[in-house]
Design a protein around this nucleic acid. Structure first.
Ligand SMILES: [Zn+2]
Ligand SMILES: [Zn+2]
Ligand SMILES: [Zn+2]
Ligand SMILES: [Zn+2]
Lengths: 153, 153
DNA sequence: ATAAACCTTGGAGTTTAATCCAAGGTCAAG
DNA sequence: CTTGACCTTGGATTAAACTCCAAGGTTTAT
């Protein structure tokens, strides 16, 4: 059993955040001490881990609540409903994944065109690309200056 | 040249959003009409595209401003600075990508364990996994009910 | 038995990223 | 020369997700 401070330390979040999650129906401690302290068990902790992972990946707390709260009227829902919700989220994750890959590619190719040297960025290919068209971000150029000859311009 | 309404329509955002981006130094129209209307050129449009893509992928406007604003004191910066910034962002993107892949895997395996049938979700493997430990999310189970025999429980 | 470190509640404040509004100026069509 | 769609500004409001605060109760250790 963790008290709120222990659980929050475990995941490096604020105790306030846990109270906030509780108020918003995401995670309630499975019990309370005699004096009213929140007591979280292992399952609560795992649920928190799930919440934090979902959040880290771009789901809003509302999204996460959707996902977690089906459980509430469990008996009035079919497997199809539950699976549908998960599959919808999965589609969203995969869309995000695709965007992210696209963006990583852009950044990689931006990075590759730049020499990374110590001279003025006046003619830096990265800045050139950002200033004008981002076609340059995707186009593969050897270097912004003069074909990797350095900074003699 | 686009006026604010045209550019915002082009990217399906509000004109207000463009004014907001301008106020926060992300994108200024390259000129104004005699009467003060904002006029965006193709480069502005491409820059906006970059902003929106970065945003879509989870960068905050501050992150994006960092990336775009090096250009301001360009001459006092070295290629190394610029490339460093891009590489930092790239690391962040790749970290996010890894998390996202992890999460997609979890969701996929959650989805796979569930029959998706029309019967009550009372014993749905997805809910079971979410309720308790998320070890179940990752562990591969054939089905929550009885090894794909359906809903005779 | 008293201080330090924890916990409780309710409510206010913050940040980010818009989004809306009011009062008014501009422009093309009829 | 007026109507309607568009634009200007500044300022208010929103929503999400915390984050902090005040006033007080609890636990643990010396
Ligand atoms: Zn260089
Ligand atoms: Zn460079
Ligand atoms: Zn089922
Ligand atoms: Zn199921």
């Amino acid at each position: 059993m963790y008290r709120i401070g222990e659980l929050s330390a475990l995941y490096d979040i604020k105790a306030d955040t846990l109270r906030f999650y509780e108020k918003h129906g995401l995670l309630s401690p499975s019990s309370r001490s005699d004096s009213g302290y929140r007591l979280y068990n292992q399952a609560d902790s795992e649920r928190l881990k799930f919440i934090l992972r979902a959040k880290a990946v771009g789901f809003s707390l509302n999204d996460i609540a959707d996902l977690l709260s089906i459980e509430v009227d469990k008996s009035n829902r079919a497997c199809a409903d539950v699976k549908g919700l998960v599959d919808t989220k999965l589609e969203q994750v995969e869309a995000k994944l695709a965007e992210l890959q696209h963006f990583a590619t852009s950044l990689k190719s931006l990075s590759n065109t730049c020499c990374g040297g110590p001279d003025s960025a006046e003619h830096c290919s990265i800045l050139e690309a950002l200033e004008s068209s981002d076609k340059h971000i995707i186009a593969k150029k050897e270097h912004h200056h003069f074909a990797n000859l350095g900074h003699k311009d």
